[in-house]
């Protein structure tokens, strides 16, 4: 029983900290996540009311950073002044995980404020690996990179799975496995989501994201973070968790916030799945 309890403490279910629901994090009357996640771009250097709220909430919860503008797939130089600010922010708030997306969001010296797909190609692997290593050297820690959703292939010469695996293996970075993105991409590009999970370097997964999406057309899903998680994504999560050892799991919700009870229910369901699979004896067996 004691051992089981220890495993339960290893299960960390977090929730994205967003201004619209900030009060609920402070009040803790419905939700009390194990950690919170923010985009550093939205909070670095903020003062006044939101700076005060951020100080309070980071006193209450451990913080994970999930960036938006590192733009690891950009052709240009890494944005060192920005990364310097991130490094300072990581230190100031004792952040354990800093992640960003396997995408590009800036090109020809212009930010785009969204995540565009990198062509799945050999030269892209080399380019991205070089940039990840530069970032890791600067930050003096592994970078965690998220598999992104994408709505069209772009001049691909290899599969998404090969692209991600090669980058993780060659750069030494960690993986943020977004299970919803796997589901979205598998649906949009007609591949088997479970087979994709089977071929991911799961031992390199540092962190997991779960979210809702929106089916905009019968054959196209958009990764909105504005809906509840659907059952097939929970099932894929269950399938994934069974193959892994404990890592933090985040519920992402960025738009159209429901009553907090609904978010709590989603977090409880994620926790129940993790608790089912991440028992001490199972983990021990997997580690042998």
């Amino acid at each position: 029983m004691l051992i089981k309890q220890e495993m339960t403490e290893d299960i960390k279910i977090g929730l994205g900290f967003r201004r619209e629901i900030a009060k609920s994090f402070l009040d803790q009357d419905v939700i009390n996540p194990d950690f919170i996640e923010v985009a550093p771009e939205n909070w670095i250097g903020l003062g006044g009311y939101w700076g005060d709220v951020f100080r309070k909430v980071t006193d209450m919860y451990p913080l994970i950073l999930h960036g938006l503008s590192l733009s690891i797939g950009s052709p240009e130089e890494v944005d060192w002044p920005f990364l310097k600010k991130v490094k300072r922010f990581i230190k100031d708030f004792n952040v354990e995980i800093y992640s960003d997306h396997l995408t590009f969001a800036k090109i020809d010296n212009a930010h785009l404020y969204d995540l565009l797909p990198i062509p799945f190609r050999e030269d892209s692997v080399k380019h991205v690996v070089k940039r990840i290593k530069e970032v890791q050297d600067f930050l003096e820690r592994p970078l965690t990179i998220e598999n992104a959703s994408y709505y069209t292939p772009v001049a691909a010469e290899m599969t998404e799975q090969q692209f991600i695996s090669s980058i993780v293996e060659e750069s030494g970075c960690k993986l943020l496995l977004d299970v919803n993105n796997v589901y979205v991409n598998a649906f949009n590009h007609n591949y088997d989501a479970k087979e994709f999970i089977d071929n991911m370097p799961l031992e390199k997964v540092m962190y997991i994201h779960m979210a809702g999406h929106y089916k905009i057309q019968p054959d196209l899903i958009i990764d909105t973070h504005g809906e509840a998680i659907i059952d097939p994504v929970f099932e894929l999560f269950d399938y994934t968790i069974e193959k892994m050892t404990p890592v933090p799991v985040l519920l992402e919700r960025d738009f159209d916030f429901p009553e907090m009870e609904e978010l709590k229910n989603e977090m409880d369901r994620l926790r129940a799945i993790c608790t089912k699979h991440w028992t001490s004896d199972v983990i021990q067996q997997r580690n042998i």
């Binding site: 565009l116 709505y151 069209t152 292939p153």
Partner: peptide, 26 residues
């Protein structure tokens, strides 16, 4: 990558190698 960004910003030159138009429009 340049053409993909250009399409997003301007709505011009949607013909990008190895892409699907519907996805680009999104």
């Amino acid at each position: 990558e340049q053409r993909l960004a250009e399409w997003c910003r301007t709505g011009k030159n949607i013909d990008i190698k190895g892409t699907k138009k519907e996805g680009l429009k999104q």
